[in-house]
Design a binder for these strands. Structure first.
Lengths: 201, 201
DNA sequence: CCCGATATTGTGGTCATCCGCACTGTGGAA
DNA sequence: TTCCACAGTGCGGATGACCACAATATCGGG
């Protein structure tokens, strides 16, 4: 997994260097990209940290870049920088999920604070997504029959009822049930319910 | 429970009348308030629908009114209207949870669409909050001892272990456990776990 | 053709759950 | 003082969950 980085996307080298220096003095690792196209080309799904995105750039704008990232299911928080902001633009980006929207000239410390909050937010999201991925992975290891039985167990049905419904014997249900618990890493139906309740698929 | 209303808060009577008419033609019930103070005085926790809030008003501004509503745990979505919007203001209100932020002059149909989406959003939130309130209410009906036993049941412990831990007999645990299921309206520990997993207290 | 994964079933037994019935004790409210 | 909610306890039985041991059967590869 790649390290958490603040990705600075701006076509002005002076700004890139200034921001990088600013963040480094606060112990925030940064990487710079000279254009939206370059960033999108280098972007990978396992990137973590946050993105500082200038809106007015040559060729592809920050807004277009943001839309492209949304389509790729980017998970990193995006902080917009703009010189001539207008309200509808700010509103629409925030409603689309941007983390913040700052107008130049901005306060150096304020930007760094926002970046740090964004990176903390991403770290939290990442942690919960990883546990979620573990659960999903374990679910994938279940055979079709086991998943079927699991659903009925979660519905609170007795083994006897499940057996009737699937036209199999109680003993077979017990075997599947046991394998489900084993593969999912739980030891009771209660734990299973708690594992699957917050964030179903 | 009160009906869903679009609450229009603006000190300009012409605007209030225009918005009311606009919404009525699209079958959205509206109620007007001539100032932030008046609205806050009349506001009740069981209001539902949405709030259309002008920012620049005599005496208390829309922003101050919004902050007051946040402190009262208002649940209705707030749509800001402003003549001379500035970006930081829009950003900060949206980050504080405002539903939208529109600049005058705005498109009539666009505003109505936003109001309708806001009211739909509130209806959904209200529905989930009501089921949550039901659960919380039932939890409140449990005696302290019953809550204690419930926690241990949810931790997946056997009645025997619970009995040891609370220094009581297994039979007593069974009685409490049974009462918990009865009061919470479930028939198994699995249902209980599912009821309490999404949104703990 | 043999192997592994999947699905299935039975026997017999242990442990846990759940429930009705009967009973004790305490502390606060009417 | 009487009534009631709350807490605690024992007995015995019915039912469900779980497990070790033991098997059969299908299917897709290697």
């Amino acid at each position: 997994m790649s390290q958490a980085l603040a990705h600075i996307v701006d076509d002005d080298e002076a700004i890139r260097d200034a921001l990088t220096w600013l963040l480094r003095t606060r112990n925030v690792a940064a990487r710079t990209w000279a254009s939206a196209e370059e960033f999108l080309a280098g972007w990978q799904a396992d990137f973590h940290g946050c993105i500082v995105l200038d809106i007015r750039m040559k060729e592809m704008s920050g807004l277009e870049c943001f839309d492209a990232l949304l389509e790729r299911n980017n998970s990193m928080p995006v902080i917009f920088l703009t010189g001539h902001g207008d309200v509808p633009m700010a509103v629409s980006t925030l409603k689309k999920g941007a983390f913040d929207f700052l107008e130049k000239p901005f306060d150096d410390n304020a930007l760094v604070d926002v970046v740090i909050r964004a990176m903390e937010s991403d770290a939290r999201k990442q942690a919960s997504q990883e546990t979620q991925a573990t659960v999903t992975g374990r679910l994938a290891q279940l055979t079709p029959r086991e998943q079927e039985v699991m659903q009925l167990v979660l519905a609170g049905k007795f083994n006897k009822v499940i057996a009737d419904q699937l036209n199999i014997s109680m003993r077979t249900v017990e075997v599947h049930r046991s394998r489900v618990f084993e593969k999912m890493g739980v030891r009771s139906a209660v734990e299973l319910a708690q594992l699957l309740a917050p964030g179903r698929d």
